[in-house]
Design a protein around this nucleic acid. Structure first.
Ligand SMILES: [Zn+2]
Ligand SMILES: [Zn+2]
Ligand SMILES: [Zn+2]
Ligand SMILES: [Zn+2]
Lengths: 226, 226
DNA sequence: GAATCATAAC
DNA sequence: GAATCATAAC
């Protein structure tokens, strides 16, 4: 056990008093808060935080688990909040790349939405993140893999009644998940776009991500021209 | 003993074939090569490499050691090469900060010249480095301390007949030096300009270095205006 | 010399 | 979650 776990509650302030952090909070209502990730791992990286005091404490594996009698009302509220977050995320991308045209951007082409299988921060949070992974804050293999492997639990996969959320969630199962994820973290790094294998060469991957970002964010402009 | 020490000879190509590396080499003659440090730890960071095949293998403590009958001809050649390097370094700084006026810059106010007490690369090299330590490549406490402590052997101090170069250079003495330097590396990080103590908070130091660099490189412009 | 990985302490 | 420190392998 760690001596001081207060950092694990770093997001709690945003669900408790979203009105106090106008520089960090992009949107809030009675049920959700949307904030910038303080250490963004891509050009756009937002967090969607359920404000419900029970839900916020739950594991992403548990909160939608079928054996746990999933709260369909909550699921639909969350999906609705994600729909509200999509244009916000797109707008953030357009701020970074003014040549992009907001109305023509397909969210699914540019973004991913999901939970980390083993979050470090205890308040339940959905990552809404652009696919580029172009960021100074992306500093380690673990950062990259955590968004480009089964460590990222796609929100829509999780909500479906599939293998992901039919696991028995007991401490044995959490131990198994931890073991799986450790294996996943040890795998090679591959480009999210073209699949090129960078093995453990993080620096080369970083250089390549610049090229891919230039391509996707310019390509769109070219498409618009033609 | 390390299994593969080839990285220690990374600078050898520049003294062997300076003409082959026009992108890296700023100046060379029959006795010296001046190159960009490949991982600059400040806005301007150059290396002066003696091309003599004996001198290049020597330790900075040994090459000027009085008990070792110092080669005064070599010393003077090196000092002359440093004099040639000074305007080059100043020019590099002006390229980064075009508001600076080349002719009015006092080298000693903006730069340091010296050896690392315990170099990682085996070819003898003098660092000519701007004092700012503002660089993305400055990533660790050791990087910073290595230029802001007795780990940096000031060239002119070393040439003087003083305590620094009167040490008996045997393996016992090298062991003592290594122990001293380890202590030095464990000390707090302090701002090179104002002396503010950042202890082990490297991130805060980095932020502060931005402020100090803005001040020194703008200050000069103000002086010129008045 | 840099970079990857593991490990505390917060 | 980030950041400091230590340790291999190159
Ligand atoms: Zn997380
Ligand atoms: Zn690619
Ligand atoms: Zn060196
Ligand atoms: Zn200062």
């Amino acid at each position: 056990m760690k001596s001081n776990n207060s950092f694990r509650s770093a997001l709690n302030c945003y669900i408790k008093h979203p009105e106090k952090y106008p520089n960090d909070v992009l949107y809030y209502d009675s049920d959700f808060t949307v904030v910038y990730d303080k250490y963004p791992k891509a050009q756009v990286h937002l967090l969607v935080l359920p404000r419900d005091l029970i839900k916020t404490t739950q594991s992403p594996f548990l909160v939608f688990n079928y054996k746990n009698d999933p709260d369909k009302v909550f699921q639909n509220q969350l999906l609705l909040c994600i729909e509200k977050t999509k244009p916000i995320a797109i707008q953030q991308l357009v701020i970074k790349f003014p040549f992009l045209i907001q109305q023509s951007l397909n969210f699914d082409e540019y973004f991913k939405v999901g939970f980390h299988a083993i979050p470090s921060l205890s308040n339940l949070h959905v990552h809404v993140i652009s696919k580029d992974n172009l960021s100074e804050r992306l500093k380690t293999k673990k950062h990259y893999i955590s968004f480009n492997s089964p460590f990222l639990l796609n929100l829509y996969d999780l909500i479906k009644n599939n293998a992901l959320n039919q696991r028995d969630i007991n401490s044995d199962e959490f131990f198994n998940i931890a073991k799986e994820m450790k294996k996943i973290m040890a795998q090679d790094m591959k480009c999210w776009k073209c699949g090129l294998n960078f093995r453990n060469d993080f620096k080369k991957l970083k250089d390549h991500l610049v090229i891919e970002a230039n391509a996707i964010y310019k390509e769109d402009r070219e498409k618009i021209k033609s």
